[in-house]
C-alpha cells in the first residue's frame, strides 16, 4: 500500500496533512513535514499536493552516490541517514519536488507511506491504494 493523491481538485488548501506528518514524527510545526500543499498560481486555481509517488525504480535512489536510498517493498524509498552525505542529488532527481529537506541535519526527508495524514484529510484528497488502482485514478 502507498499513499496516493486521489483527487487534487478536491483539495481546499487546509494543509492539515502537512501538520499531521509532523505529529506522526513526534514533531510540532512544519519543519519535518514530508508532504506539501501549494496553490497552482493563486488560490483561485486550486492546489497541488506534493508527496512521494512511490515510483517503481525510483530516480532518487538511482542517483544516490552512497546507496543511502533503497526502494522499499510496496513503494517509496528507505533513507539510511548513516550512509547519506547530504549531497542533494536525490532532491534534484525528483521531478515533482517530493524530496523535502531537513535543514537541521542537511539530509532528505521522504514520505514513508504510513498513511497517517490520510486520517486528517477531511475532504478525501488523500488515500491509501494499491499501486495499480492509482494509475487508473490519476489524471
Amino acid at each position: 500500500m502507498r499513499l496516493a493523491v486521489l483527487e487534487t481538485e478536491k483539495c481546499v488548501g487546509c494543509q492539515l496533512c502537512m501538520f499531521a506528518c509532523s505529529r506522526r514524527q513526534n514533531e510540532a510545526g512544519l519543519a519535518k513535514s514530508c508532504i506539501g500543499v501549494k496553490s497552482i498560481g493563486g488560490m483561485e486555481r486550486g492546489f497541488s499536493v506534493i508527496v512521494c509517488r512511490a515510483c517503481e525504480n525510483p530516480p532518487c535512489a538511482k542517483v544516490c552516490p552512497t546507496d543511502a536510498l533503497t526502494p522499499r517493498e510496496g513503494g517509496g524509498v528507505h533513507v539510511d541517514l548513516e550512509k547519506c552525505i547530504g549531497c542533494g542529488h536525490c532532491r534534484e532527481a525528483c521531478v515533482i519536488g517530493a524530496i523535502y529537506w531537513d535543514d537541521e541535519i542537511n539530509k532528505p526527508m521522504i514520505c514513508i507511506h504510513c498513511g497517517f495524514c490520510v486520517n486528517f484529510c477531511p475532504h478525501g484528497v488523500l488515500g491509501m491504494e494499491k499501486k495499480k488502482e492509482i494509475e487508473h485514478a490519476s489524471k
Partner: peptide
C-alpha cells in the same frame, strides 16, 4: 465553484 480553507482549518468556510 471552489472551497478554500485557512491553514490548519478542517472546516474550510471560504466560498468562491
Amino acid at each position: 465553484g471552489r472551497r478554500l480553507a485557512c491553514s490548519n482549518c478542517p472546516v474550510g468556510c471560504i466560498h468562491i
